[in-house]
């Protein structure tokens, strides 16, 4: 659910801003490019953060949500601390990912799938589960790389650095109730 469905039609910029907690200041972008220039994934992104923000302002919803840029964001926060306008760039990237998933917009399904698989384990056990995550994700998206990555997994095992079974927290029912309520409130943020 997006902001637009709750509080009437809004332009895309307002929609992104409303879905990003706090005083994110996205409307203050001066297109200086400090963000893209600082970004470790910048070279592999289809649009640098600066370009993405110009597209948001231009209302290019589909192009923005289809971009690999938010998924390639590694949350290094370089852009955020360097932005002369104090825009919460990394938080905006999180918003765009969540919006893309809601809208079902992406050309490489492996990008959201890693996040979603991670979330699945957390929702089931209350803890993350590295072995399950890596296996499930790679089976689905890089079956050929599994053989190549096997030594890594084995070496993790040998060093006692990976669990064979997930750990479930005791308050799982409580956590599920919280998350279920939270999801029903997801649109309220906007």
């Amino acid at each position: 659910m997006t902001a637009a469905t709750i509080s009437g039609p809004k332009d895309f910029l307002s929609e992104v801003m409303a879905a990003t907690p706090g005083d994110n200041r996205l409307n203050h972008c001066i297109q200086c490019g400090s963000c893209g220039g600082s970004c470790p994934s910048g070279a592999e992104m289809e649009h640098t953060p600066r370009r993405l923000f110009a597209l948001i302002r231009a209302g290019e919803r589909k192009t923005v949500l289809m971009s690999n840029a938010p998924w390639y964001c590694v949350s290094c926060y370089y852009c955020t601390v360097r932005c002369p306008q104090n825009i919460h760039i990394t938080d905006v990237m999180y918003t765009l990912k969540a919006m893309a998933i809601q809208a079902g917009l992406y050309h490489d399904t492996s990008l959201p799938d890693f996040s979603e698989t991670f979330v699945d384990y957390v929702e089931k056990y209350g803890r993350s589960f590295e072995l399950g995550l890596a296996t499930r994700f790679n089976l689905r998206h890089h079956p050929l790389s599994l053989a190549g990555m096997a030594p890594l997994g084995l070496n993790m095992l040998k060093r006692g650095r990976i669990d064979l079974t997930p750990h479930r927290i005791e308050g799982m029912a409580q956590l599920s109730a919280i998350l279920e309520r939270a999801k029903s409130l997801e649109g309220v943020l906007a």
């Binding site: 879905a19 907690p21 938010p70 998924w71 590694v74 949350s75 999180y94 918003t95 990912k97 969540a98 998933i101 959201p112 890693f114 996040s115 979603e116 991670f118 979330v119 957390v122 209350g126 803890r127 993350s128 927290i169 308050g171 956590l175 939270a182 999801k183 409130l185 997801e186 309220v188 943020l189």
Partner: peptide, 14 residues
């Protein structure tokens, strides 16, 4: 419980 790493925030904000 798990903090969600950098992944949970990408799927559901609240």
């Amino acid at each position: 419980n798990c903090c969600g790493a950098t992944e949970y925030m990408s799927v559901h904000r609240v």
